[in-house]
Write a protein that binds this DNA or RNA. Structure first.
Lengths: 240, 240
DNA sequence: CGCGAAATTGACGACCATCAATTATGGTGG
DNA sequence: CCACCATAATTGATGGTCGTCAATTTCGCG
């Protein structure tokens, strides 16, 4: 199934013709290399970018050289719905590992959404979930300690990726360096390393070869204080 | 001018008739008391809530008793655009000081937006700016130290409130306790107190009687590493 | 005036950043 | 195929920022 359809199917189901409409929109794809910058901060925002394969992250650089990763986007995710209204983007988009993206003009997407309200709702749902995740990141970074933050992120990714069939058994591909992880959970690189060791020592996860394995999902969730409600998954994707 | 029109005017200008359409939508208002919970976490999301006067904040509670404030909303702000698509809300809305809110049904708002695209764009712009602010909060909490975080927040509020004429001279009403502030910038209450003292000692701000005064805007911005770009203000509201 | 909430202060220790150095890894070319 | 090099991961030591506990003072309001 087309990644965007797959993603939206976690919210609603679509007819064959609706699927084809969506697929047609994303005909123009592009391969991106690991660490390739897809869109720069301060650049005027033009097309909307969708992830077809692999991962993309959103990041901000500070004047003091620090970096904060704001989100991880996986297949089917839109990177910037409707950002064209704003003058310029306030963050960059960078590929994590090799991937495939599609660029869609704002006009074309709007045209499709005006046609079918079911699709408009589905995209709206995706946007709202993304906002909800951003709020959870604020909470995670603000109120939890580093090991809990990492554990929480791994739980989030697990549920998100499982809903789009990107989980095999209890493990999923996660092409992050420890530095990437540290910029996502707002710790130093050194501390991220120690956090990972602690989680491994507690037999909660394994992480290597760009792959994360959850050894004890219940334990990891309990440790992180994770509650998947904020992902607004439909019932069939919610169970542990 | 009506608060919602005032707020949207920072993005576009409206005809008399457009203004009246908006005003008509918000006829049903309601007074809320300090600390009054306007909408509970886990509650199904029904109407969209707009702030007419005063402040509202968005917050999440964790199982361990901690609280993270996710946003401060001021007159003209919508609290939850389109949240009715989601099953239930994932955060609460609480009044900060006495205020006035309006509840608008999703249907009525949608009907108006379908009529005039200019309004749809304006609301869309407001939503996008709110998302941008959420991303900046992630960055702020993740990458800056506590005094810088507080300073950054005060700068943000200054620009946001100035655009809707809620700033007098260099000061604005900010009905926060130090505990509220600490839950917004993710520090302990004790540390928030010390942070405020430090900012005062550097003659950057004054804070008392629920009012924040910026004594040295340039200095505060420099200290915080503040860059107002992410607020996406039109040129006339951007200058220091 | 009196009460509870809010602000303030001090002491102590935990978590985590930073610096610095070492080991492992993975991709490249001879 | 292996030597080589840059990148990534790991380890140890040290100190700063900040959380927690506990007590006191101030403030706001009836």
């Amino acid at each position: 199934m087309h990644p965007v359809v797959k993603k939206l199917s976690t919210f609603a189901s679509f007819s064959k013709s609706e699927e084809e409409q969506v697929e047609h929109l994303f005909s123009r794809t592009q391969v991106v290399a690991d660490k390739e910058v897809i869109a720069w901060e301060d650049e005027p925002a033009e097309d909307i970018i969708f992830v077809m394969e692999g991962f993309v992250h959103r990041a901000k650089m500070l004047t003091n050289g620090r970096r904060q990763i704001l989100a991880f986007m996986s297949p089917g995710d839109a990177c910037d719905r409707g950002v064209s209204i704003l003058d310029r983007r306030d963050h960059s988009l960078v590929a994590l590992g090799e991937g495939i993206i599609a660029r869609v003009s704002h006009q074309k997407l709007e045209a499709l959404l005006t046609e079918t309200n079911k699709l408009r709702d589905a995209f709206q749902w995706a946007t709202l979930v993304e906002e909800s995740i951003a709020r959870e990141w604020i909470t995670n970074i603000g109120q939890r300690e580093a090991p809990e933050r990492a554990a929480h992120l791994f739980c989030e990714m697990f549920y998100k990726l499982r809903a789009i069939d990107q989980v095999e058994g209890m493990s999923y591909r996660l092409p992050l360096t420890q530095r990437d992880l540290s910029d996502a959970i707002a710790t130093s690189e050194v501390h991220a390393n120690r956090v990972l060791q602690a989680l491994r020592a507690q037999h909660l996860i394994a992480f290597g070869d760009k792959r994360l394995t959850i050894l004890d999902l219940q334990g990891l969730e309990r440790f992180a204080g994770f509650d998947p409600t904020y992902l607004h998954l439909s019932a069939k994707y919610r169970q542990t």
